[in-house]
Simulated assay, not measured.
Amino acid sequence: MIGILSAFGAATSWTYACFIWRSQTQKYKSIDINLIKNIIAFLIFLPAFINLSSTTELKNIFILLISGIIGIGLGDTFYLKSLQTIGTRKTLSIETLSPLMAALSGEFFINENLTTKSWFGIIIVTISLFIILREGNDFKEENSSFSEKNKFKIFAFPFLSVLCAVLGGLLSRMVFLQSNLSPFLTTEIRLLGAIIFLISLKGFKINFFLKNIDKNQQKRFFISILLGTNIGIFLQQVVFKTLPIGIGWALLSISPVISLFFAKTEEREITKKIIFFTCFLFFGLTLIIL
Rank of each mutant, 00 (worst) to 15 (best):
K153C: 01
F109E: 03
K149F: 09
V162Y: 05
D138A: 06
A165Q: 13
K153L: 15
F108V: 14
L163A: 12
I154H: 07
I154N: 07
L133P: 00
S118E: 15
F120K: 04
T116S: 11
C164I: 04
E148N: 12
N143C: 01
R134T: 04
K117V: 10
L129F: 14
F139T: 09
D138G: 04
K149N: 15
V125G: 08
E141H: 09
L133H: 04
I124T: 08
S128I: 07
C164L: 06
F146A: 09
C164M: 14
E135S: 11
S144T: 14
T126H: 00
E135F: 01
I132G: 02
E135P: 01
I124D: 04
K140F: 06
I132C: 06
S147T: 15
N111C: 02
I123L: 11
S128R: 06
F139E: 07
I154S: 08
F155S: 05
F155G: 02
V125M: 14
G106Q: 05
I122F: 06
S128L: 06
S128M: 04
F139R: 10
D138P: 00
E141S: 10
A156P: 00
I124K: 03
W119Y: 15
S147I: 08
F146Y: 13
A156Y: 13
E148R: 10
N113Y: 12
I124F: 04
L133Q: 08
I124W: 03
S105K: 01
C164S: 15
R134C: 07
N137V: 02
I131V: 13
F159Q: 03
F109W: 11
T116A: 09
E135C: 03
I123V: 15
F155E: 05
S161Q: 07
S118R: 10
E107P: 00
D138V: 05
G136D: 15
E148Y: 11
N111E: 10
T116M: 10
I131R: 02
A165V: 03
R134P: 00
I110S: 05
I122P: 00
K140D: 09
